[in-house]
Design a protein around this nucleic acid. Structure first.
Lengths: 223, 223
DNA sequence: TCATAAGTTGCATGGTATGCAAACATGCAC
DNA sequence: GTGCATGTTTGCATACCATGCAACTTATGA
């Protein structure tokens, strides 16, 4: 059995490898061109040409021009979900979320240069940043389902002293809120990390924001 | 001095009233057409025709076709900011945020039918929902600034036992996180409220989600 | 009333996005 | 390897989205 040293993960047939290569070529071309000329001045035609495919093919891979700048595949969601379910049972849902997300983000940070360029592009194009964040938002429901699956049925959280009725309603809300907090942590981290130009590692910022959020948001000290 | 019974708020000259009327006509036409035919099948031309203006004028009001479905004006941000700063000093930043947002959302709930239709449209068009969320995201920074202004300089929150250095860094983070939580509360509330079709009033849901978020997200009970 | 500023419109232009059918490559069975 | 079924790419036609510009219409304030 030979090592598969292909693209991002182990590759199936030639077809799938080619598809991954094309997609990677498109995203990379897009990010490089955008970093050089500004995201808004890069046309689909230019991206396609740089990647060596036709414009029509571009739209076979991405629904929208902007989608090429999102950079997170559909696999990301699945990865996080798996990591979440595989995390040690002793971890609280929140901790498990933190670990799962940290792992995924670390992997994303692997492709260092592209990630850096991508940061530059987003910093110069708020429109796209918003789009990326919104894409993450879309994952939230999936994440909430994974959380619900992890904590299992019959569980749920509600502040002490909640009535039975309110408790029942909060049940469905809990995974949602957890997922929302996690996504918010990612969002604020990215935002803050982009604002302070890499003054700190992304991982650091993320851990801090997550801690702040999960700690229960204490009121600021009196003075 | 006569009462101004115009559009949404007191109107200045005839010009401004006309502008507001045109904008309102466009958004209303857009939402109604989208509710009837599906959001993706409504062209700018159709919307403009229904509102009685030219296509070119549409783009004088909205940068993008999709923007007409966002429904929150730039005034919303300003309103919340004002309410936040005007809230009683005894309220914690979090409570002040809750009150300010509740007030603004209540006003939005006034135009009941349009709001309901809008919900329908968004439910059927995830693409647009994402866009709306993105718009809210953009407000977040503004909100964070308002929070920072309210809690004033020299304040900030950090968990007890934080080093001086970490505390300094957390300072800027705190308003951001607060704003992020508030926006998240709005988002989750809208989402949940849309999912359970008006089983409960929006205000109720919002209050609960906000409480859940602000309470510090206790871990789910053991059993 | 008149000059000015603001808003609207049509036109020209170019980028974005989709359906369709023909050409091409891949996977698989034989 | 030959040949077929399936999946991908491509060009073309078409429609919609979006912007700049110049001409035209309408409020505003002196």
């Amino acid at each position: 059995m030979q090592l598969m040293t292909e693209g991002s993960a182990a590759g199936g047939g030639l077809r799938e490898r080619k598809k991954r290569a094309t997609r990677a070529a498109l995203t990379e071309a897009a990010v490089r061109l955008a970093a050089e000329h500004g995201a808004e001045r890069v046309t689909v035609e230019a991206i396609s040409a740089a990647a060596g495919v036709s414009v029509r093919t571009f739209f076979n891979y991405f629904d929208t021009r902007d989608d090429v700048f999102v950079l997170t595949g559909a696999e990301t969601g699945a990865n996080v979900r798996k990591a979440l379910l595989a995390a040690p049972a002793r971890l609280s849902p929140m901790e498990a979320l933190r670990e799962a997300l940290t792992a995924e983000l670390a992997e994303a940070e692997q492709r260092h240069e592209l990630w850096r360029l991508h940061g530059e592009v987003l910093r110069a194009a708020p429109h796209l940043l918003v789009r990326v964040l919104a894409a993450h938002l879309a994952d939230e429901t999936e994440l909430a389902e994974a959380v619900a699956e992890r904590i299992g049925p019959g569980r749920g959280a509600a502040p002490p002293g909640t009535s039975h009725e309110e408790r029942r309603k909060a049940l469905d809300l809990y995974p949602r809120v957890l997922a929302a907090v996690a996504v918010t942590a990612v969002r604020v981290s990215v935002d803050h990390w982009c604002a302070r130009q890499e003054e700190r590692s992304f991982r650091e910022v993320f851990q801090e924001v997550f801690a702040l959020l999960a700690a229960g948001l204490p009121a600021p000290p009196p003075a």
